[in-house]
Design a protein around this nucleic acid. Structure first.
Lengths: 294, 294
DNA sequence: AATTACATCTTATAATAACAAAGTGCAATT
DNA sequence: AATTGCACTTTGTTATTATAAGATGTAATT
């Protein structure tokens, strides 16, 4: 009768926060700091911490607050990578994507139909549909119902996407406002090195995908132009959907990470136009290898 | 208690359709054809035509349907250009934009607050907010409420937008898939010529803006790459919002239309890279002149 | 001075019902 | 054969109400 609690998501976020800040056992976790960080009030932070206490990750001290009960890096995510255990809205979102790619939809669908099909209240369904609309693969019709844009999910569009990415990223790098971000570079180096040195064998598909996207988005962020970054983020969200259907060719990853590192090298030795050219072929090269199942 | 009828919008659409197809007095207007065209069922078409009959624009013949009562070009829009007579959702959308640009919002707003402020039911408000979110200048917070992204509305972002457009459009033209669309070129020529030959003096701001956007979107459409087109459309929607605040410098329009025609000339004589380079400076040039009021 | 813990207020989701508008099948008309 | 006109079904918006979750001010504790 009421909404889904934020606390599960926030629990996960807190764990990630603790890890990425390399916090240690005994460190204090002030409510307001976490609340500001996640852009919510103290209330959901409280309940998330209470849940984390039950899992033994934090310790509560009366009137003093919550403290880390273990070292950050020692925390393992509960329910880690159990296949497709997407929770809540995301589960339905993915089901819709899957049903669309399997051709289970007519071009036109009514909201009621979808509500019945996925057993979701209208409010929630609409939230999901609007998200999909934002990603561009569904569209509200003027009268009743919604219409899927199958074109965006096609093979042709997939290749167009690579062209778009290659052009945008290359051009972003050539902008006069482009400026390498030392901190971003350092972290990218770490991740890419780790991924190249064996990580590619056991990391999950989602992790690999994220590492790759993070790298490219970090580069575009250096352009200092929000529109370029936004365009890349937007197309990456769509790409995630299509590439989930594809088997990753892990044998190609060492080469990929090496190329990523090479780009950083070039940039750090002020050979920007070389880096941009290399980036272009790097992206276009990736598109030819993989072949969608569908 | 029920939703807004589509018929007003469809009436307008029919008029536009009739005009752009140069239809003549006495021409038949089949329901299904119009329905397919506007992606709705015959029902709202019927009621739209009934309203048009009351205005004397079409004539009904029993069991035969509706026929144009006047020549297409002779129809004047009712309530034409009466300043800012935006109807329905658009009115609220524009009010929100205006209130934001005037700094009347805190960074954080709740849905209830907005419902009270604009006296709109939640469903409608949400539709508008999602549209705004799609344009990128508002964002749902994880807990309660929404947050405006003022950055997108700033002077800096305005300039970044021009850079983005210039790059995207130029690169779109350089794609191997780029192919001039003779029909699109012809129509663009007509519009731009008309605008240059005096149209710039009496066309409304909205009309001028639309002609300009149509021109650029037509060009990008020739790239045959949906992502380029989408990116341009997206930024143009945002641009409309900011430029509405700006006084048009009509004296610059003849030069602008001349440049547009020049681009078409270059493309038609197969001088694509020249055209692309010119297009780039054309767009960047436009950004320096105008100065936002805000 | 910072921060929690609690009480209180506010917000958004969900279920329901009413209703006008959109969608549709088919006989009637041209 | 095409298209309308109409009866009928389905859909989506709105208002209402209940409720759990988020937001927040403040006294108490460190």
């Amino acid at each position: 009768m009421a909404r889904n609690s934020l606390s599960p998501r926030i629990s996960t976020d807190i764990i990630e926060f603790v890890k990425s800040n390399a916090m240690r056992k005994g460190d204090h976790l002030p409510l307001q700091m976490l609340a500001d960080n996640f852009r919510v009030s103290r209330a959901p932070i409280m309940s998330a911490l209470q849940k984390l206490e039950e899992r033994g990750i934090v310790r509560a001290e009366p009137n003093r607050g919550y403290f880390l009960a273990v070292n950050g890096e020692a925390i393992e995510d509960l329910e880690p990578e159990n296949g497709q255990a997407a929770e809540g809205d995301d589960a339905i979102y993915l089901k819709i994507a899957d049903d669309l790619l399997s051709g289970r939809f007519a071009e036109r669908v009514s909201e009621n139909e979808l509500m019945r099909l996925y057993e979701v209240p209208r409010t929630r369904l609409l939230k999901i549909l609007h998200r999909i609309a934002d990603e561009g693969w569904i569209e509200r019709l003027p009268g009743n119902g919604w219409s899927f844009k199958q074109t965006l999910m096609s093979r042709k569009s997939y290749e167009e996407g690579y062209v778009f990415r290659a052009v945008i990223e290359q051009q972003a790098m050539l902008l006069s406002t482009f400026q390498p971000d030392p901190d971003g570079f350092r972290r990218a180096r770490e991740t890419q090195t780790e991924l190249g040195n064996g990580g590619y064998e056991h990391w999950s598909r989602a992790e690999i995908f994220k590492a790759n996207n993070d790298f490219h988005e970090m580069l575009v962020a250096c352009s200092g132009n929000e529109f370029f970054l936004d365009a890349i983020k937007r197309i990456n969200r769509l790409r995630r959907l299509l590439e989930y259907q594809i088997t990753i060719d892990r044998s190609r990853l060492p080469k990929q990470t090496a190329e990523h590192l090479h780009i950083l090298d070039l940039l750090e030795s002020d050979r920007r136009s070389e880096a941009a050219a290399f980036l272009y072929t790097h992206i276009m090269g990736a598109s030819r290898i993989k072949t969608p199942k569908v």
